[in-house]
Amino acid sequence: MSEVPPLSEADPVCLDEAGPEEIMIAAIARLLDGVDHIAVGVLSPIPGSAALLARRRSGARVSIIGSTHPDFRTDGGVDLFDSAGQGRIGAFFLSGGQIDGSANINLTGLGDYPDMDVRWSGAFGSAYLYFLVPRVILFRAEHSRRVFVPKVDFISAPGTSPANVHRPGGPYALVTNLCVMRFDRDRGRFGLESLHPGVSLEEVRDKTGFDFDIPDIVNESPPPDAQTLALIRGPVARDIAGPYPQFAASVLGYRQTDLSEAEA
């Protein structure tokens, strides 16, 4: 990774070239600054790409569930959860069919439990990792009132806990196709951090079913600069193509022939 110069804020911006997924990848990667070991769960190509981008910049260790690449594969399910319990995992990603303003997430279903009106697959590791991983970044590529509700129907994993509950981890930020929000754990509330290019505050308000804090000056999420885009479309796309070939090809434009050009 030493051949990659450090990211410079002065690099030229090529806004009209970055796709919405690439803006999310760049936004998530910024939230991973300073994390030593990033773990990526199932069905997470965007966070996975962000983790790989952070690795390219800072040398962070990345474990991707489902990857068979020796650099990224985990030592199995038990080890991943034990590593989190030991405090060795600095960041993880969770999503939700519903997410509310207290950062409670619902991966279980809609309606009254157990024979719900809509049933999703289940909580997976969320009810554990949300407590133990210091920076859990929530992500959802669909910013809508269907997803961001006043109160989730079922708490697969709670956003906050009473003071006596052992909880070194928890929600850190929320990244969507429209904006970045940060979560204030003491107050148990989201606050708007930045709007993606071209997105208005009104649109985010309209599409969010919960109340959130708005700073006096709302920043724009910095779009990926030319160097970041080159990283995303080059080595990151190549690495994410292992577990997520379709995403790498259709979203990041990765071609299999790029493999021959890959650096050692």
Binding site: G85, T108, Y113, P114, A123, A127, Y128, L129, Y130, F131, L132, F154, I155, S156, A157, P158, S161, P162, V165, H166
Partner: peptide, 13 residues
């Protein structure tokens, strides 16, 4: 024993 779960509807059910 296991960490986590406290306050979830997984545990409540």
């Amino acid at each position: 024993p296991l960490r986590g779960l406290v306050g979830s509807d997984i545990l409540n059910n």
